[in-house]
């Protein structure tokens, strides 16, 4: 017995120690706690790193499995995957699908949402960090965060049933007076509600909280000495923001906006409910209808039975995955170490 203890004592790197097989019973006495602890340590470390690796593996597997399922359909595709506006999968023996219109509708609605949400989010973040009274700043921030807690299907219902009729006059005005700009000319829908325009407004509301939250967090980290230096020079409140807060927080604001863009690109159910389907191709107008990647997949979800047509939708999902991957990776690179989450 004493021999065993001696052998274990010299070093803690006893993993190769032949005398500590995992099955050997360890009596409950103080000198013997070391090996069980060591085993506990290595088991625990293994579990923890395993969970970390699992996250990395999850991303890799998502890409891999989508690819595996998409390739056969892509091989059987009769149309050009990147340039064809049609997406017909009704006949499994004659697939012809392309993502041109999906891409355009996705990008138009998301970028429009971003254009609407970015200035408002900047204002809200500045309001919360520099203007709101100290005691009210946290409850106010909580209110904005609540926007993110509302499920997207409820935004969808609200968007089409309540918001769309309310903003139709604005859409009509833009269409009548600014119709000479390609963005506002009459699109491929007979009506002016349930368009990319409507969808973009709904998406803007949905991505507002994330842009605000990230910007707010970074603005709040502005070094005190910079703010005080600006104040000592007699800067007004706005000048403090322009000289200290904005230069420091710019990268965080941009990163937050990219995260918002990523959310908008992948938003499914609200877009599916709000933006009407259209039979004719996209005409580069905000008053077009159609499907985004996500809404097309969701709309066809109940028909996922035959592998080849399903693969066509999965290939659309793969493109969406790559798109959001790139946008989110960019956001992280831009943010540097400032943003966590």
């Amino acid at each position: 017995m004493s021999e065993r203890i001696e052998q274990r004592a010299p070093g803690s790197e006893g993993e190769e120690d032949p005398i500590v097989p995992s099955s050997s019973p360890v009596p409950e006495s103080t000198p013997r706690r070391a090996p069980s602890s060591r085993r506990g340590e290595s088991v625990f470390r293994f579990l923890a790193s395993g969970s970390g690796v699992l996250v990395v593996a999850a991303i890799a597997l998502i890409g891999l499995f989508l690819l595996i399922q998409a390739v056969p359909s892509l091989m059987a595709n009769n149309a050009n995957f990147f340039t064809s506006p049609e997406f017909s999968t009704g006949d499994a023996n004659n697939l012809s699908f392309g993502i041109r219109d999906l891409f355009l509708v996705t990008v138009f609605s998301s970028v429009f949402a971003l254009v609407l949400a970015m200035p408002v989010a900047l204002g809200v973040a500045l309001f919360l960090t520099n203007y709101a009274p100290k005691q009210l700043s946290r409850p106010f921030a909580y209110v904005v965060d609540l926007l993110a807690a509302v499920p997207s299907i409820i935004y969808g219902l609200w968007g089409i049933l309540v918001l769309a009729p309310a903003i139709e006059p604005i859409a009509r005005w833009l269409n009548t007076n600014l119709g000479w700009i390609f963005l506002f000319r009459t699109g491929n829908l007979p009506v002016l509600s349930g368009t990319i325009f409507t969808g973009g407004v709904v998406l803007a509301v949905m991505i507002l909280p994330i842009i605000t939250a990230v910007s707010r967090e970074v603005f709040a980290q502005t070094p005190r000495f910079q703010i005080e230096a600006a104040k000592a020079l007699g800067a007004t409140r706005w000048e403090v923001i322009r000289m200290a807060t904005l230069p420091y927080g710019r990268s965080g604001y941009i990163a937050g906006s990219m995260l918002g863009l990523g959310r908008a690109l992948g938003e499914t159910i609200a877009v599916l409910i709000v933006i009407r389907a259209s039979t004719s191709p996209m005409t580069f107008s905000l008053f077009d209808g159609g499907y985004t990647f996500a809404s097309l997949i969701a709309s066809a979800a109940s028909e996922f039975s035959q592998p080849l047509p399903t693969g066509a939708y999965i290939s659309a999902g793969l493109v969406l995955f790559v798109l959001t991957f790139v946008v989110n990776a960019l956001a992280r690179v831009i943010a540097g170490g400032k943003v966590n989450g």
Partner: peptide
């Protein structure tokens, strides 16, 4: 891992659903 956690946070729910389906 830290990078992939951020990427996973940005994966759209429809893509997660498609992955489980596939």
């Amino acid at each position: 891992t830290s990078f992939m956690v951020d990427i996973l946070a940005g994966v759209p729910s429809i893509v997660a659903a498609l992955f489980v389906f596939a």
